[in-house]
Design a protein around this nucleic acid. Structure first.
Length: 862
RNA sequence: GCGAGAGUGGCGGAACUGGAAGACGCACUGGACUUAGGAUCCAGCCCGCGCAAGCGGAUAGGGGUUCAAGUCCCCUCUCUCGCACCA
């Protein structure tokens, strides 16, 4: 008899069972309702960390639950296998990135299997294989044809540490998203995906994603950054041409007194060409260009500019406006030129003060009067227009449209929309990525690789030195090729694609992993499985990955490859796993096992407990999943991750909490084992006889628990409260006096409770549940059993407590049958000794009765 | 600066649409069983006064709406996250 709970043995047994029986492999089945559950696939960095454990446990519970509810569940797993760490490891240790990556994949796969996740491993994909990335090269060609791919020379974000370009989305406050080093500008030839072609749809569809957290949608909307405004043109004072600006504040046009141009803008040098100041301006521009982006956005640099010895005219006031180049104007937003209204824009105000430029107030606030001589900051609130010709006296916000129309009638402007979103630069000067399928011919220029020549396979035999630049550029047999147009000598593109390209369509590939005909995606399979019903991953991908995936889905839809507009119907962003940090004065940060009884194991110095932060190797506050599995088993790790906090919140790791979860499993195991011999051959209670007392209560509690757990999982993924409900049921089972062996009715009620417990726990602690379930003599595994149903009649309480309030304060409680009439409750309350005393001598103004909850008697003195 | 979210016992967290604040777990305290237990089972556990039944207070702080507010509204404070010279 297996009396003791030994997770290690049980877990291996069931994992073998699932693998041998291919329990979780799925096929399209038009008879069954599909459910596609996806967790963000991992980068194979080497080992699974607790963040993965949490993410995948949440997903696994939902997948297993939906399966028990009768859905045809697709729950795949794969590897986001291209990326820089592989290349860095190659440079540091002389291992080829593919070897490093594949070894990591093998190890992490083993770890995932040890967690008991219900993946369909037949669909495993690895994005670094040509069978995968060849299709994205094909999509690239199609996009090229549709003008959704283009090349341009541009200032790019260059990370000197990673030796590569970063997309705008990958620069965080001027720092590289990966290595946190400063990003500097650099001029490079880059390939771009025209994500801006879909900007309006990407924005509009945000409102069609009710299953996404508001936070993520807001972040996406802000990132897209739609602004309504005007494009205005200001004639040059010398009559030669004009300068165009974008503004959202055309209401302030009468106050525009000077013009600003981004320092990097080509117009700057054009305007001073041949003038006395040309050299001075060039020097200044060069200086500004050298400033790091990170410095320019901080307050470190003051606003500064340089006069270009040129004027334009304000189209409505006809005033002469001096033109300056300025360091704070963005070259790639709007037209790169800005009309400056110093009275109503703080930046322009500071600039005007510094260079002694004229101010004109055009908006007066409601309560005070602005004076250009005494103003200390720009007035940016709403007000009444002044000094604005025909618009004087209007509210500035209401004048926006009128002024736009007026400027339009003058032929000086038109309403436009600007977006913050820029196109997605995908060129990376790295080796370990998908080659961009392009060749350069001396005669014919840049040409896409013909479709029949795909895939462009990433060669294996390269030398990785870490000296910068792509190693592919030095690989002669890769680089040298012939022009598809003239057959003359040509060179291949040696940049590779941003790895976010692979993760923008992997969820499609999972639907048809084995499908290898053009275009690599099987429309029939996609039509069955897509969209993903539930996507789960970290909030850190709220913009990057999720926006790119949405874009790619729309592109593939327009190619007819897929039939959905949006890839992910519901999105859950799980919180981070945090833990307190520990420090020793001599040895710095300590790993958990470097501290024993509050002392450092190296020097016996007392350990200082630091603040709780996201688990990270660099501050050593990590927990090794392997250790957890060995010590407690995967089921304990799983249930703890779910129980400690709701999934969208951060989880604070607690070793004692893990112990508590382990204790709960042991406690449950013990009571089931205790009853095992008596209930193994007994069928669950079928409702054919009338129960009372403890048994009736236990059965009610059982059905209530089924109801609670079902709702908690279904409605809101609150696994923590679902688990606490199950704990209550176990506690209730312990409270029931042990029935006699002959009391078959009692034992059948116990059996019903134990069966329900195992089924309710099956998605959370699958090995544990399967083992006990099997021991109880069940023939069909929990994984293949239907989710338990509750009987609402059984779950309903018979006696309820009605709270009696006087003036909103709880003054008593009475116990009544569930269907007690309002009138009789009122008279019961009035008869209550305590209540009588409290309302004596007072006037009852009214009584508020909330059915089955409370009675509030409102009284007043006298 | 702009935007979003959060603030509840010693701790993690419950409280669904306004209706018993603190479920469940951890920690702690006591008891039982034990040679022993850091195993297990049972019980107690927001704060103040009280032997007690009870009374009063309490959901960051202040105000409001309501018969009734952790929940709705307004103001203030604190923290977290995202964007950040986007004209």
């Amino acid at each position: 008899m297996n009396a003791k709970y030994t997770p290690q043995q049980i877990e291996e047994k069931w994992q073998r069972h699932w693998e041998a029986g291919k329990t979780f492999s799925v096929k399209e089945d038009s008879q069954k309702k599909k459910y596609y559950l996806l967790e963000m696939f991992p980068y194979p960095s080497g080992k699974i960390h607790i963040g993965h454990v949490r993410n995948y446990t949440i997903g696994d519970v939902v997948a297993r639950y939906k399966r028990m509810r009768g859905f045809n569940v697709l729950h795949p797993m794969g590897w986001d296998a291209f990326g820089m760490p592989a290349e860095n490891a190659a440079i540091a240790h002389g291992i080829h990135p593919s070897v490093w990556t594949n070894e990591n994949i093998a190890h992490m796969k083993k770890q995932l299997k040890r967690m008991g996740f219900s993946y369909d491993w037949d669909r495993e994909i690895s994005t670094c294989e040509p069978e995968y990335y060849r299709w994205e090269q094909l999509f690239f060609l199609w996009m090229y044809e549709k003008d959704l791919v283009y090349k341009k020379t541009s200032m790019v974000n260059w990370c000197p540490d990673c030796q590569t370009v970063l997309a705008n989305e990958q620069v965080e406050a001027g720092l590289c998203w990966r290595c946190s080093n400063e990003v500097s500008p650099r001029e490079l030839d880059q390939w771009f995906f025209r994500i801006t072609a879909y900007v309006e749809e990407l924005l509009e569809h945000c409102d069609r994603l009710p299953g996404w957290p508001d936070r993520v949608l807001t972040m996406q909307k802000n990132w897209i950054g739609k602004s309504h405004g005007c494009e205005l043109s200001f004639p040059m004072a010398d009559g030669k041409g004009d300068i165009k600006v974008f503004t959202t504040r055309q209401d302030t046009i009468f106050g525009a007194t000077f013009m600003l141009i981004a320092a990097e803008h080509p117009l700057v040098m054009e305007l001073v060409k041949g003038k006395e100041r040309e050299d001075e301006v060039r020097e200044w521009v060069d200086k500004i260009k050298k400033h790091d982006k990170v410095m320019r956005i901080s307050d470190y640099y003051e606003k500064e500019g340089i006069f270009l010895d040129t004027y334009c005219l304000n189209p409505v006031t006809k005033n002469k406006m001096p033109i300056y180049a300025a360091n704070f104007v963005l070259a790639d937003y709007g037209t790169g030129c800005v009309m400056a209204v110093p009275t109503h824009d703080q930046r322009d105000f500071e600039f005007a003060k510094k260079y002694n430029l004229p101010l004109i107030v055009v908006i007066q606030p409601p309560k005070k009067v602005l004076n250009v001589h005494t103003m200390t900051e720009a007035y940016v609130e709403e007000g009444i227009l002044v000094n604005s010709g025909p618009f004087n006296g209007m509210e500035n916000m209401k004048a926006l449209d009128k002024i736009a129309e007026y400027l339009e009638s003058l032929g000086r402007g038109k309403k436009t929309i600007q977006y913050r979103l820029r196109d997605w630069g995908i060129s990376r000067q790295r080796y370990w990525g998908a080659p961009i399928p392009v060749v350069y011919c001396e005669k014919c220029g840049a040409l896409p690789v013909p479709e029949q020549d795909l895939p462009v396979i990433l060669p294996r035999d390269v030398e990785l030195t870490g000296e910068g630049g792509s190693p592919l550029a030095k690989h002669e047999s890769f680089v040298k090729t012939s022009c598809p147009n003239c057959n003359g000598p040509a060179r291949r593109e040696t940049d590779t694609m941003d790895t976010f390209v692979e993760s923008s369509w992997y969820f499609d590939k999972f639907c048809c992993a084995a499908f290898n005909d053009k275009p690599g995606l099987d429309r029939k399979a996609l039509d069955y499985w897509m969209p993903v019903d539930q996507y789960i991953g970290g909030i850190e991908h709220a913009i990057l990955h999720l926006l790119y995936s949405r874009f790619f889905t729309k592109v593939l839809r327009d190619f007819g490859v897929i039939g959905v507009d949006e890839p992910f119907t519901n999105l859950l962003t799980q919180g981070m796993v945090c833990k307190e940090t520990m420090k020793c004065r001599q040895h710095g940060y300590l790993f958990p096992d470097e501290a024993k009884e509050g002392r450092c194991i190296h020097c016996q110095e007392e350990v200082v407990i630091g603040k709780t932060e996201k688990m990270s190797k660099s501050i050593k506050n990590v927990v090794d999943p392997d250790y957890l599995i060995e010590r407690y088993g995967a089921d304990t790790a799983r249930i703890f991750c779910l129980f400690a906090s709701p999934p969208e919140k951060d989880l604070e790791w607690s070793d004692q909490g893990v112990e508590g979860s382990y204790r709960f499993l042991n406690r449950t195991w013990r009571i089931v084992m205790d009853y095992l011999d008596d209930i193994r051959d007994i069928a669950p209670f079928d409702g054919s006889s009338v129960l009372d007392g403890d048994l009736k209560n236990l059965r009610r509690k059982t059905h209530q628990t089924i109801r609670k757990v079902t709702r908690d999982i279904d409605d809101r993924f609150h696994f923590n409260t679902a688990i606490s409900a199950v704990m209550e049921l176990v506690n209730a089972l312990y409270q029931v006096p042990r029935p006699a062996k002959e009391d078959l009715t009692a034992l059948s009620v116990i059996r019903e409770t134990v069966d329900s417990l195992m089924l309710l726990l099956a998605p959370t602690v699958p090995h544990f549940s399967e083992e006990l379930w099997e021991m109880m003599g069940n023939k069909v595994n929990t994984a293949d059993s239907p989710w338990p149903e509750y009987d609402p009649t059984v779950a309903t309480e018979e006696e309820i407590t009605i709270v009696i309030q006087i003036n909103g304060k709880v003054r008593g409680r009475i116990s009544v049958p569930i269907d007690e009439e309002e009138e009789s409750i009122k008279s019961l309350a009035r008869a209550d000794e305590k209540i009588v005393k409290m309302i004596e001598g007072k006037t009852v103004i009214k009584e508020i009765y909330v059915p089955r909850k409370l009675l509030n008697i409102v009284v007043k003195e006298g």
